[in-house]
Amino acid sequence: MMKKAENIIVGISIGDLNGIGSEVVLKTFEDSRMLELCTPVIFANVKIMSFVKKSFESTSMLHGIDKLDQIVTGKINVFNLWKEGVDLNPGTNDEKIGQYAIKSFVAATNALKEGVVDVLVTAPINKYNIQSETFKFPGHTDYLDQELEGNALMLMVQDNLRVGLLTDHIPVSEVASKLTEELIIKKIETVRQSLIQDFSINKPKIAVLGLNPHCGDGGVIGKEDDLVIKPALKKLFEKGTLVFGPFAADGFFGSSQYEKYDAIIAAYHDQGLIPFKTLSFGKGVNYTAGLNKIRTSPDHGTAYDIAGKGIADYNSFKEAVYLAIDIYNARNQYKEISENPLKTKEKQL
């Protein structure tokens, strides 16, 4: 049976406490109507969150809990993951604060794995101060790929605009060598399955951008598009996947071609993220597709330059919560249809 919306438990990792993460989290749930959609559980410390709350005169009522079986529906639950006080210096890069960010993220991920929370929404971290002997990952996505079942893929989402990546957090100098036929096929199949089960699109159309300028101009400006990308797309299309391209990346978004497709796959990080963030107007969401659990995050970083000033825009985080709930419901519906196709058809009739 599908959970009622207000019973969906949203686990929240607090991110870098010297950034804007805690502010956008609290601002998101200032509107009491959000608590009719879900029940948040913030993995941090209620004293710290109360301190942050006072810094921008928030009226949110926080409910501190010491055990995860004490979660109260319809409240802003703060799980006291640590007891000690933490010195905050907004806008400052601090290794100690980075370790609290990872402590929160790891605990929230464990709760997600164990089914204590239904979805995970992560506040922004600093990729430099989180590194340690026990955590050596470029960011959230790589850790989740290790801890959860499936193949993680970064999918940026804003309404009907969805941009996925063949490669993500690697140097541009390594992109060409990482693009193999096997990788391209795996990533596109992951996106296709996500569009079906997470976004309820039965026959998704996917566009793929070329790696080189003008897709290599027949090999004059690079051979990868002809020798690697095109054969992979041909194999997928012959198997029934509606995948098209490669398209020259420079004019694809400017000419509004992107509007004809359910998802666009870019070859590397900035090729996909620059047009996405330009078009999404601060409401974009980073969704980790391809895993057996749901994780979303806002499409921005720690924003040290405005941290502690109470002026952070929370719309992207709010959209990340909405999307996590929507995908949770879509997956449940997909599972119900897959397991009971005849029963579901009878209901519709």
Results as ranks from 00 to 15, higher is better:
residue 61 M to E: 15
residue 131 Q to V: 11
residue 203 K to P: 00
residue 78 V to K: 12
residue 64 G to W: 12
residue 188 I to Q: 08
residue 294 I to Y: 07
residue 238 E to H: 07
residue 13 S to L: 09
residue 171 P to C: 02
residue 241 T to P: 04
residue 295 R to S: 01
residue 342 L to F: 14
residue 342 L to E: 15
residue 287 Y to N: 00
residue 340 N to W: 01
residue 93 N to Q: 14
residue 61 M to Y: 04
residue 148 L to Y: 07
residue 240 G to E: 09
residue 76 I to H: 04
residue 62 L to A: 00
residue 47 K to H: 14
residue 313 D to Q: 05
residue 139 G to M: 03
residue 26 L to H: 01
residue 102 I to G: 03
residue 257 Q to W: 03
residue 243 V to E: 10
residue 9 I to N: 01
residue 325 I to W: 03
residue 171 P to V: 03
residue 114 E to A: 15
residue 22 S to A: 15
residue 311 I to H: 03
residue 12 I to D: 07
residue 298 P to L: 11
residue 137 F to I: 00
residue 51 F to A: 13
residue 45 N to F: 09
residue 247 F to V: 06
residue 349 L to H: 05
residue 132 S to N: 03
residue 165 L to C: 03
residue 165 L to Y: 09
residue 120 L to T: 08
residue 338 S to F: 00
residue 267 A to C: 15
residue 263 A to V: 09
residue 162 R to N: 04
residue 133 E to T: 04
residue 33 R to L: 13
residue 68 L to D: 08
residue 67 K to Y: 13
residue 253 F to P: 11
residue 109 T to H: 00
residue 128 Y to M: 12
residue 50 S to P: 01
residue 130 I to K: 07
residue 207 A to W: 14
residue 57 E to I: 01
residue 76 I to K: 05
residue 28 T to P: 11
residue 69 D to N: 15
residue 251 G to P: 00
residue 25 V to Y: 01
residue 274 I to K: 01
residue 184 I to E: 03
residue 178 K to N: 07
residue 209 L to F: 07
